[in-house]
C-alpha cells in the first residue's frame, strides 16, 4: 500500500495555502507534516480526505481496495472531537463504529485501549478535554482502517495518554497501516519522515491566479 501526492496545491478563500507539495508514504511508515502556523498542515490533511478540493496536482493510493476512495479507507482525527455531550461515552463510540464500520466492533476493547472503559456509561459532557480526545481516538481502534490522518494528535493529551497513543500508532504501523500526522512536536515513532510545508513553498513560492490578478489591479 502506498499513498502518494504529486505537485499538490490547495486554495482557500481565493488564497493559496500551499502548492507544489509532493510526498509518498508506504505501509508501516509515518509522515510528519510540520511547519509554522498557517503553513497549511490542516489543509493538507483535509485535502487528502477530500474535504477540501484539490486545486492542482493529484493524489493516488495504490495497493488497496480499488472500489473505495482514500476517504473511505482513512480515519481523520481533526481538531474537533465529533462527540455529542448528551450521549454516553459508549453511545458516542458505538455510533461512529456503527456508522463507519461494516462489522460490529468491540466497543469495550476500544474504550479499554484508550483507558476510558470505566467511564463507558457517563455522558460525554462530563469528560475533560483530554478524555474527549481519547474517546475520539477510540474510534480509530474500534474500526480498522489502513490510513490514519491525524491533526495534532498529541494536543491536550497528558504524558501517559501520549504514551498510550504512541503505542496505538506503533501497533497500527506494525499491522501495515500508514500515518500522516500534522504535528509540532516529535511523535516518538520509528520510520518517521518529515514533510516541511515551509520549504516546499507556501503562499510566497508560486503566486496563485487570484494573487496575480490582485497584483495586476494594483499596477493599473
Amino acid at each position: 500500500m502506498r499513498l502518494s501526492a504529486s505537485n499538490l496545491a490547495c486554495h482557500r478563500g481565493g488564497r493559496e495555502v500551499f502548492a507544489g507539495v509532493s510526498f509518498a508514504v508506504a505501509a508501516g511508515e509515518v509522515l510528519a507534516v510540520t511547519g509554522r502556523n498557517g503553513a497549511g498542515k490542516s489543509s493538507l490533511l483535509r485535502t487528502v480526505v477530500g474535504l477540501v478540493r484539490v486545486a492542482q496536482g493529484s493524489l493516488t493510493l495504490e495497493g488497496c481496495d480499488p472500489e473505495l476512495t482514500i476517504a473511505e479507507q482513512a480515519h481523520y482525527l481533526g481538531h474537533q472531537d465529533a462527540l455529542k455531550p448528551s450521549l454516553s461515552v459508549a453511545e458516542n463510540l458505538k455510533f461512529w463504529a456503527g456508522f463507519l464500520g461494516r462489522k460490529a466492533a468491540d466497543i469495550a476493547a476500544a474504550l479499554a485501549a484508550v483507558g476510558l472503559d470505566s467511564l463507558a456509561d457517563l455522558p460525554a459532557a462530563y469528560l475533560s478535554a483530554g478524555q474527549r480526545r481519547r474517546l475520539s481516538i477510540a474510534r480509530l481502534v474500534a474500526v480498522k482502517r489502513p490510513i490514519w490522518l491525524l491533526d495534532e494528535p498529541m494536543s491536550t493529551l497528558d504524558a501517559a495518554a501520549q504514551d498510550r497513543l504512541g503505542g496505538l500508532m506503533r501497533a497500527h504501523l506494525a499491522e501495515g497501516g500508514l500515518i500522516l500526522a500534522a504535528t509540532h512536536g516529535p511523535l516518538g515513532l520509528p520510520a518517521t519522515r518529515e514533510l516541511r510545508l515551509d520549504e516546499v513553498g507556501g503562499a510566497s513560492a508560486q503566486p496563485s491566479a487570484s494573487q496575480q490578478w490582485g497584483a495586476e489591479t494594483k499596477l493599473s
Partner: peptide
C-alpha cells in the same frame, strides 16, 4: 458522583 468519577479517572 459521576462527575467525580470522570475526574478521578485520568
Amino acid at each position: 458522583l459521576r462527575l467525580m468519577q470522570a475526574q478521578a479517572t485520568s
